[in-house]
């Protein structure tokens, strides 16, 4: 899931969850206040979404989600302005992948300080994507931002879907914003071929050990619902089961093509993205158990 993990899966999820007519009416962008919070919002653009927090002293925004959407960053800023006239103080990148972090210029122009994990910054320096703003500040394992009475913790918990994922946690609200590594109610998608599989299991365990009740995913869950610890546990279980099954196949010398073609996880067959995601999961674990790659 180093890239666009849940994109395909989330797209399918929406397709499955919403009748065709209703889906056609779903607007391209939407801003939703998270129930039970004073100032936590979700901005959705297509099948990507990010969290922003409005405080009396300013706004903390996250992922611009404007890849391939030249006006997406400005639309996001405009949506924030509909909610508050406070300045946007921070823009925080969840991880380096462009589908989440392209389009930050409007935030930068509005005066935001851009923060990312140091591995994201290192990567961006090499890739020089014209649509992605370079971070002003690169962090290591942890940083806490306090603004207008709100505390936001940024934690790097090791390799997972990328090598630069920041888990963002609001301790008072018991909400986390975690992008791509833990899909909500969907089977892993194409991005799974690029995850760090063993490290991702450890990452999810660390996430589960944190104090939170609700998770905002980077791609909308079924019916736009938020994630729970049960969702995180379900993804961990799925990965452990897939890993064990393919380890057996790999050690029997069945990787690659036969496993990619024949691998099944029947108990997950009803999850959106199942059919397309299976060969990707097989491919990733064949590399791990077949080659050590």
């Amino acid at each position: 899931m180093r890239v666009i993990l849940a994109c395909a899966a989330a797209a399918v999820a929406v397709t499955f969850a919403v009748p065709a007519a209703a889906q056609a009416q779903r607007p391209q962008i939407a801003t939703t206040k998270v129930d039970g919070t004073e100032g936590v919002y979700i901005f959705r653009n297509g099948n990507h979404q990010s969290m922003f927090i409005v405080t009396k002293d300013g706004v903390i925004a996250t992922d611009p989600i404007a890849y391939g959407r030249p006006t997406g960053g400005q639309q996001y800023v405009d949506e924030i302005k509909k909610v508050t006239d406070k300045p946007i103080k921070y823009l925080i990148y969840s991880h380096v992948h462009f589908d989440h972090i392209a389009g930050g210029k409007a935030f930068k122009d509005a005066g935001a300080r851009v923060i990312a994990h140091k591995n994201a910054t290192a990567r961006l320096k090499v890739l020089k994507d014209p649509h992605t703003v370079m971070p002003d500040e690169s962090i290591g394992d942890k940083k806490t931002i306090k603004l207008g009475g709100t505390t936001l913790e940024l934690s790097y918990l090791g390799l997972n879907h990328s090598d630069s994922t920041l888990v963002m946690r609001l301790p008072k609200e018991k909400i986390v914003f975690i992008v791509d590594t833990i899909p909500v109610g969907a089977f892993p998608g194409r991005g799974f071929i690029d995850i760090y599989p063993l490290e991702t299991e450890e990452f999810i365990k660390k996430v589960i050990a944190m104090d939170w009740d609700r998770m905002i995913p980077g791609h909308p869950g079924p019916g736009d619902r938020l994630g729970t610890k049960d969702d995180a546990k379900a993804v961990l279980t799925l990965m452990q089961e897939a890993s064990a099954a393919i380890k057996t196949d790999a050690q029997a010398g069945k990787c690659w093509d036969a496993v990619e073609k024949d691998f099944k996880m029947e108990k997950y067959a009803t999850l959106p993205g199942y059919a397309n995601g299976l060969p990707m999961v097989a491919r990733r674990y064949c590399a791990l158990w077949g080659r050590g790659a």
């Binding site: 180093r2 890239v3 666009i4 380096v96 992948h97 462009f98 589908d99 972090i101 990567r123 961006l124 890739l127 994507d129 992605t132 990328s162 090598d163 194409r190 991005g191 071929i193 690029d194």
Partner: peptide, 12 residues
């Protein structure tokens, strides 16, 4: 192609 697409999407 998939490999290079990952790269150009910001992946490794």
């Amino acid at each position: 192609v998939e490999r290079y697409c990952l790269y150009y999407s910001g992946g490794m």
